[in-house]
Design a protein around this nucleic acid. Structure first.
Lengths: 216, 216
DNA sequence: GTCTATAGAATGATAGAC
DNA sequence: GTCTATCATTCTATAGAC
């Protein structure tokens, strides 16, 4: 079912003297780039990128196909923008973790929490990233950037092993892949607004990864 | 690049008096249902099911499209057969685990090992199953069957918690999803014939899941 | 009048059915 | 191999808010 576009003129602020959060938009009201991208990414993750046609998106938005092309140059550009958002979110969380923590083990822990935060708050975008098959240059680029992210995580694991705060009888790359495999699998079943709090979920993930399932 | 079809007549056995492993096939030599399915599943997992056309498959096999339709009624039937194989493999491993082990904790451990064994030996088939989006009745059926499998695993976790052999401060469903999320993520990077032995890999997975990453 | 969002019709390419 | 539906995309023109 089509979603009604939000008219920018209706966006108001509670405080009387506040500046508008978004600069007033002139011209005919309707969807903006942001809203179209959000819907597109949601449909992409529901049906798959390849299986989704521009016609599908226009039906979902209640627009014609040509109206969509006013917002985006191509279907592939929609994908590229979505992947950029997912990757910059994850990379940003990793950089904050490195900045704010002193030891590799603490950085790793913070990186896990950060990744789960990004994954739960931008679920559709991250899901899209995780399902890439590398069928186009855009996808290959994103996959490569993701590979570099994974390598930075593996580096953290290696340092934490050297610190003696992570067991070193398992290869660092394997540890990184297993832990992030567990994290990434959250996109398959976590539902925003559901019963599960993202922070408590991160607690559970860290509990399993660090302490294991054996009873205390 | 096309793969040469194996002529059944060339399949021999080392021992002189052995029965042929496969009954001799009459008629024009060429691909059998099995070989076509194998190639199709590999291409599906490489490019994605939706992104793969029948023309892609025929190019890969060096056959015409009509020759392919001699082996299969539809693209969807190829998918259905592949999913059946993946699901029966996983279900079989679970049933063996339940049969051969006495306690829930041991059954769970054996189920983890069995799932990893199936995943590594039938990687393409399991990968296809894990990437389903539910876009057709065939996919919905498979997703439902997979959901029942997951519920049986969660049941094992619950029993193992009741036995006191698995920590019970984390919800059983969550534990099952996290552990199998970790296992399923293996399809993303495990490569058959590579440096990593599947049995040792299962050791690592169980080590992380049961004992965690903290040093001994 | 200016700016933005949207429509409608048409094109070339390709995939899947038969 | 042929046929037809569907796909992504483009062009030109209009509608509505300031």
């Amino acid at each position: 079912m089509p979603v009604s576009p939000a008219y920018r003129g209706e966006v108001t602020d509670d405080s009387a003297d506040a500046q508008p959060r978004v600069p007033a938009r002139r011209g005919r009201p309707g969807y903006g780039r942001e809203e179209v991208l959000d819907v597109a990414v949601r449909v992409f993750t529901e049906q798959g990128y390849d299986a989704t046609s521009i016609a599908d998106l226009s039906k979902e938005l209640g627009l014609t196909k040509s109206a969509l092309y006013h917002h985006f140059a191509s279907k592939e550009q929609l994908l590229a923008l979505a992947l950029e958002r997912a990757l910059s979110g994850l990379e940003g969380a990793l950089e904050r973790a490195i900045e704010e923590q002193a030891t590799a083990a603490d950085r790793l822990r913070a990186a896990v929490r950060g990744a789960i935060e990004v994954l739960t708050s931008q679920q559709s975008y991250v899901t899209l990233l995780l399902r890439l098959r590398g069928n186009s240059p855009v996808e290959l680029d994103a996959l490569d950037r993701r590979r570099r992210f994974d390598q930075r995580i593996a580096g953290l694991v290696r340092e934490a092993q050297a610190e003696g705060r992570i067991r070193d009888d398992i290869d660092a790359g394997t540890v990184a892949r297993l832990v992030f495999g567990m994290i990434n699998s959250l996109v398959e079943w976590y539902r925003p607004g559901g019963a599960i709090d993202p922070v408590l979920l991160a607690d559970d993930v860290l509990a399993v990864a660090l302490d294991g399932l054996r009873p205390r």
